[in-house]
Design a protein around this nucleic acid. Structure first.
Lengths: 211, 211
DNA sequence: TAGATTGTTAATCGATTAACAATC
DNA sequence: TAGATTGTTAATCGATTAACAATC
């Protein structure tokens, strides 16, 4: 589809466009110009047009962009049309919270099973999803498939889980453990602590950050 | 402390330095050069030195950086020496998971209370922290203080919670609701969905992302 | 002292913003 | 057609990387 390499900065903006367009559509907005969209999202109109033109010309000169069309295109670019099977390794607090989170469902991410090493958790049922023993991970993935593997375990187990999930055939890894795992498939590191630490920095250096 | 404005890019790297230095110290490493540190963290040596020199000259020519000193300085810059009181609004899955998360404690973030509107949750005790009614938010904060307010509620309630927390005097807001809230204090948006959506993009465009 | 590595200035690179011809 | 707004090229800006004198 795109010819040139799309920069990380553009990729990070795509979900924001997606969310904003969903909102516009929900509000019954049918068309929007790069100028209005930029204003609403606190971006620059040129940037909006540049971003979209990484993937093709979705607009119409003199008119703007049809919200419908644009949303569909971006949904496609983000591969949010199909259903993505998700397995979670680690059925502790984070794993359970993710298994309960409704937000993923509407974007097509469906948690199918959780895995844990703790016998007290194995056999349980969290929000209708079974908790299986970690030893069954490879067998389960081979049999049922899994697009995304989530690491919701503690730091020391993270890399081994990443290795096993990648070997078993997941297409991508979403890592919540506070360590950068390496894998032959795309990995998204979440690093929740980094986020609150940045907040701590910004609070401490508030005057400098003032606009 | 610093004279010029520190860029967002540098700020985002600070927690990574912090984490890495903690690890080095735990491994008994006493000194490190910008070159080795850059290699380990997959950064550039010049970048590492530039980053540190935003805040002062922590190194010694011909020697490198003392891990101890550097860690202490970065801890200071990030304001991770004191204790930060954290209140969580929303005692659902995300709120509960955050209240259980041990990782925050060691960086000095202490959850003191949760708040919810659901009478079935109010009065409970999550990991030793009380769940209070949302009506008590302002009173509680005025009486006990709160440095950071966490929004773990649903989208529609997020902005109002932000307003109330800021008015009651929190110094910063950590927002898990899928909407950008605005406030007169620093805000960190987490946007978990954006993260898994970026992963979806990267999976779909794997060939292009290959290095 | 000689060697190593910083702090800092200069060069490069890439991302953002501006400008404007194309065209609906 | 005239007005509006895109797609795209050019200019600017800022961040990253390289270079090197300072100095431990």
């Amino acid at each position: 589809m795109q010819t040139e390499r799309v920069s990380e900065a553009v990729i990070r903006r795509l979900p924001r466009y997606y969310r904003h367009l969903l909102q516009l559509k929900a509000n019954g907005v049918e068309r929007i110009s790069s100028g209005s969209l930029a204003q609403q999202m606190r971006l620059n109109a040129s940037q909006v047009r540049q971003d979209f033109n990484c993937f093709g010309g979705f607009g119409q000169q003199g008119y703007g962009y049809r919200v419908d069309t644009l949303l569909m295109e971006i949904k496609n670019i983000l591969s949010l049309n199909g259903r993505h099977k998700v397995v979670i390794v680690g059925a502790g607090n984070i794993g359970q919270a993710l298994a309960h989170f409704e937000g993923f469902e509407k974007d097509g991410f469906a948690v199918t099973a959780l895995f844990d090493i703790d016998e007290r958790l194995v056999g349980r049922d969290i929000n209708g999803k079974p908790v299986l023993h970690i030893d069954e991970l490879e067998g389960y993935i081979r049999e049922n498939g899994a697009d995304i593997g989530v690491i919701a375990a503690r730091r020391s187990a993270a890399q081994e889980i990443a290795d096993r999930m990648a070997a078993a055939g997941v297409a991508g890894i979403w890592n919540f453990a506070p360590v950068d795992v390496v894998a032959p498939v795309p990995v998204e590191q979440v690093h929740m602590s980094d986020s609150i630490i940045c907040l701590s920095y910004k609070i401490a250096h508030r005057d400098a950050a003032e606009e």
